[in-house]
Simulated scan of single mutants.
Amino acid sequence: MSRVSLATIESTGSNYLHHIKAGHFALDTDEPTQLGGQGVGPAPFDYYLASLAACTAITLRMYAQHKGWELGQFRAELELTRDDEGRMHVHRVLRSDQPLSDEQWQRLLEIVANTPVTKAMREGAVITSARGDAL
């Protein structure tokens, strides 16, 4: 198998606040105060949506550039909800300040349905865990 990404996380001793290293970037994660956290960083599901939003914007920008389309100021708004059966649903709304045709929008919606992160979230991934050596 070839590595796609690598992330590590370390506790801080401050309830749910943790430091993440993703590639060479430093991020923090926490839970909202109503869930016992300090609310000083995005919660795990915030990062879940953010990764999908990032892949959405980057993929569509690449596609538009390839086609010679001007997306201008582009925005993707994502919302994560849970239905009565407990299933998660992500709704994504795309916006641009450029006058794109109905055909262009239809193609962008087809492309966004198949971004790499969209596929990974929709199809799932095999997740394994193992015990490591002491720190």
Rank of each mutant, 00 (worst) to 15 (best):
Q34N: 07
G36P: 03
G36Y: 00
G37K: 04
G37D: 08
G37C: 07
Q38D: 04
G39D: 01
G39P: 00
V40C: 13
V40D: 15
V40R: 14
V40Y: 14
G41T: 05
G41P: 01
P42F: 06
A43P: 01
A43Q: 03
P44Q: 08
P44K: 08
F45K: 10
Y47G: 02
Y47K: 05
Y47A: 09
Y48K: 06
L49D: 09
L49G: 08
L49P: 05
A50W: 01
A50D: 05
S51A: 05
S51K: 05
L52D: 02
L52V: 01
A53L: 14
A54K: 06
A54L: 04
C55P: 00
C55H: 02
T56M: 12
T56I: 12
A57P: 06
A57H: 09
I58P: 11
I58R: 12
T59P: 05
T59W: 03
L60P: 01
L60D: 08
L60E: 09
L60A: 11
L60R: 04
A64N: 12
A64D: 14
A64P: 10
H66F: 07
K67N: 03
K67S: 02
G68Q: 06
G68C: 08
W69H: 04
W69Q: 04
E70I: 02
L71E: 09
G72Y: 06
G72P: 03
G72D: 09
Q73K: 15
F74S: 03
R75G: 15
A76H: 14
L78C: 12
L78T: 10
L78N: 10
E79R: 15
L80W: 12
T81D: 15
R82I: 13
D84Y: 13
E85H: 09
M88D: 09
H89N: 08
H89T: 03
H89D: 03
R92Q: 04
R92G: 01
R92I: 05
